[in-house]
Amino acid sequence: MTLKRTDFYYNLPQELIAQVPLKQREKSKLMVLDKENGDIKHRHFENIIEYLNEGDCLVLNNTRVIPARIFGKRKNTGGVVEFLLLTRIEGDKWETLVKPGKKAKVGDTIVFGNGVLEAVVLDIKDGGIRIIEFIYDGIFEEILDALGEMPLPPYIKEKLEDKERYQTVYSKKEGSAAAPTAGLHFTQELINEIKEKGINIAYVTLHVGLGTFRPVKVDDLSDHKMHNEYYEVDKKTADLINKTKAEGKKIIAVGTTSTRTLESICNDEGLVEAKSGWTDIFIYPGYKFKVIDSLITNFHLPESTLIMLISAFSSRENVLNAYKVAVSEKYRFFSFGDAMLIQ
C-alpha cells in the first residue's frame, strides 16, 4: 500500500494550538496510548513515573536552542532580511533559511546590529537554503545572544515572556533551531524522582533543524527527503542503552528527535554504538523499530513527518483515533501543548 501525505491529515480547531506554556511544566495532560490495541488513558505528566520501572532507561535529547532568528539589512540597498540559522556546517559557515529569499543572492552582504555582524551569501541549495559565512569581531555566541530571537514556530503568535520555557531543563549543547518539545514537560524535581526510583537516564544530542519541521510537500511519502541533522552519542550512553536491552528492560525515548537518533545508530539487533554524524532518517509506517520500546511525545501537526513517525510506532489508525479523542477532550496541541506516552 502506497502511503500518501493526506493519509495523516486530521482536523484541528485553531483554539487548541497552545500559545503559551503552562505555568507548571509537569501539569500538562498526558494521554497514555497502548500501541497494540489503541486503548487510551487520560493522566497528567507528573504521573509519567508510574509507567517507568526500575532498570528502564529514559533517553533525553540535551540539545539547546540558540536564538537562531536574526534580522538584518542588505548592505547595498537597506532591504530588510530575516535569517533562520539551521545548521553550523563548520567554523562560521551556516545553512540558513532566508525571507525574502530573492533578497539574498550569491555574493550579497547582509548587515546585522549596526555592523557588529555581517553575513556573505556563498551558495544557494535545494529548497532555497542559503549557505552563508558570518564576519565579526569577538565571540559569535555572545553577538547572536544579543541580536537573535528565539525561533518559535509560526503557529505560536504570543510573545514568550521567559526564553527558558522554550528550553528543556536539561538542555546543554547549543545548536538547535527548535526545541525537542517532548522534553519541555520535565522538571528537575521530576527527573530526580525518576532517578530515585532506579530508572537510568541517558543523554543523546540531536540538533533540531529543518529535517524535523519542514513540511511534507510530496504526495507519495517515499518521495520525501529529510534534511540532515547533526547528532552525537557518547560511549557512556551507548553502553547504558545496550546494557538495558541485554537485561530485558525498556528503552523509553523522549521525543521524536531522541528516537531518530537511536534508530540511526543501531544495528539489526538493536545495539547502538557511540558515534557522531548526520542523519536524514525518515520513519513512517512500515518501519521496524530496533531500539525503543516506548515513546514520550507531543501532539504533532497534521501531515507532518512527526505524526508519521508515531504512526509507525503504533499504527496510523490508533494514532488518528487518539488525536480525534484529544480534540474532543480539548488537549493542547503542538510545542507548548500536552504529551502522549505510547507504550
Results as ranks from 00 to 15, higher is better:
102 K>R: 15
276 S>C: 12
126 D>N: 15
288 K>G: 00
19 Q>P: 09
140 F>S: 10
259 T>W: 04
133 E>N: 11
234 D>N: 09
199 I>Y: 01
337 G>M: 09
296 I>Q: 03
321 N>K: 15
325 V>S: 04
89 I>R: 13
254 V>H: 02
166 Y>D: 06
339 A>Q: 07
200 N>S: 14
104 A>D: 00
338 D>Y: 00
301 L>W: 01
132 I>V: 13
10 Y>M: 12
72 G>P: 02
144 L>H: 01
161 E>D: 11
188 Q>I: 12
149 E>M: 14
135 I>V: 14
342 I>R: 06
171 S>K: 12
291 V>S: 01
257 T>H: 02
333 F>N: 11
100 P>W: 02
198 G>W: 03
266 C>N: 11
171 S>Q: 10
2 T>Y: 12
236 K>A: 10
241 I>W: 01
56 D>L: 11
206 L>C: 05
31 M>I: 05
168 T>C: 10
115 G>I: 10
107 G>P: 06
82 E>H: 07
26 E>T: 13
162 D>F: 08
217 K>Q: 09
272 V>N: 04
304 S>G: 01
269 E>Y: 08
228 N>P: 15
145 D>V: 12
184 L>F: 02
35 K>H: 09
207 H>P: 12
257 T>R: 10
30 L>E: 00
179 A>S: 03
159 K>C: 02
133 E>S: 10
170 Y>I: 07
246 A>M: 13
105 K>V: 03
103 K>N: 14
241 I>F: 03
96 T>P: 01
200 N>L: 10
188 Q>R: 13
307 I>N: 03
14 Q>D: 15
14 Q>R: 15
80 V>K: 15
155 Y>M: 12
179 A>V: 14
100 P>I: 05
126 D>F: 07
127 G>H: 04
137 D>E: 15
287 Y>S: 13
212 T>C: 02
163 K>Y: 03
50 E>M: 13
65 V>A: 04
110 I>Q: 00
289 F>T: 12
159 K>L: 10
215 P>Q: 08
153 P>L: 09
93 K>M: 11
291 V>Q: 02
